[in-house]
Computed example of a mutant assay.
Amino acid sequence: MDRSHNFRIAWLLPVAWFYWQPALCQFTQIFPQTKVFTGLFPGFARGFDNSFVVEVIGKFHVLEMARETTSYGSNFTYLSPSIIFHLLRLRPHAIFSSSFGIWTILALLLKPLCWWRVIIAYEGSSPSVDYRNSALRLLVRRLMVKLADACITNSHAGKAYLVDILNAKAISKKQNTYEAGRIRISHLGKRGLRCKRRSIGRIAFFVKEIPV
């Protein structure tokens, strides 16, 4: 049996939007013991019904901290801390966690005790989510990048932010595309969404290097 069948993988996504689903479908084909935890799930996209295991944890809330007319402003995304119990029950070998939210922080804090690997998936880059003018947020994010085993992003701007602003080492930190980048999500009528496997294969290669 392919040793990839022995890996338990958790994806932590605040919202499992439709654009994630082609990548998650392909990823699950390589790693069947993949489970997606999310705070909000809009349902499966056409053509991807039950193509991966998903579980909604708690309630998803976005709290507006400061409003700006030129951007999204400063927000805080509340996600249930009960994710801890679900991760302890699953005992994944690797965790892919979206961005720098509370679930990523919890996964990193538990890493020394649970011996799992944590990969931060950063969805692009923009002034409204980079918080380049917040010294405290940048300090926390730099520490998170240092504690993580790898980072992936879906844009060159995201890579520049990780490397140039958060001090991720380009050699040791994996930079790959996913979602609608090189995977190229496209609507194809009844056939739903399609994606290319190249970037998923690169991510899978990294995961397979983890000893089980």
Rank of each mutant, 00 (worst) to 15 (best):
M1I: 15
R3Y: 15
S4D: 07
N6W: 07
R8M: 07
I9N: 05
A10Q: 03
A10G: 07
W11F: 15
L12Q: 06
L13T: 01
P14C: 05
V15S: 11
W17M: 11
Y19H: 15
Y19S: 14
Q21K: 03
P32L: 09
V36R: 09
T38K: 09
G39D: 07
G39C: 04
P42E: 04
G47H: 06
G47Y: 05
G47T: 05
N50R: 13
S51H: 14
F52L: 06
F52T: 06
V53M: 11
E55R: 11
V56H: 03
I57M: 05
G58T: 08
V62W: 02
E64K: 15
E64A: 14
M65K: 12
A66W: 08
R67K: 15
E68D: 13
T70G: 09
S71R: 13
S71M: 10
G73S: 04
G73M: 08
S74L: 13
N75Q: 15
L79E: 07
S80D: 15
S82Q: 12
I83K: 04
I83S: 06
I84C: 08
H86T: 05
H86Y: 14
H86C: 05
L87C: 08
R91M: 11
P92Q: 04
H93S: 06
G101K: 07
T104D: 01
T104S: 06
I105D: 13
I105N: 07
L109R: 09
L109Y: 07
L110A: 11
L110S: 07
R117M: 04
I120N: 02
A121W: 01
Y122T: 08
Y122N: 12
Y122L: 12
Y122G: 00
E123M: 04
S128K: 09
V129C: 01
D130S: 08
Y131V: 00
N133T: 08
N133K: 10
S134P: 02
L136G: 00
L138W: 00
R141E: 07
K146H: 09
K146N: 03
L147F: 09
A148L: 03
D149W: 03
D149Q: 06
A150H: 14
C151T: 12
C151W: 00
I152D: 01
T153H: 00
L162P: 02
V163A: 10
D164S: 10
A168M: 04
A168T: 02
K169I: 01
K174A: 04
K174Q: 11
Q175K: 00
N176L: 13
T177E: 08
E179V: 08
A180Q: 08
I183M: 14
R184M: 06
R184P: 00
L188I: 07
G189A: 05
G189W: 02
K190R: 06
K190T: 05
K190P: 03
R191N: 10
G192M: 01
R198G: 00
R198A: 09
I200T: 08
A204M: 03
F205R: 14
E209G: 14
E209F: 01
I210C: 03
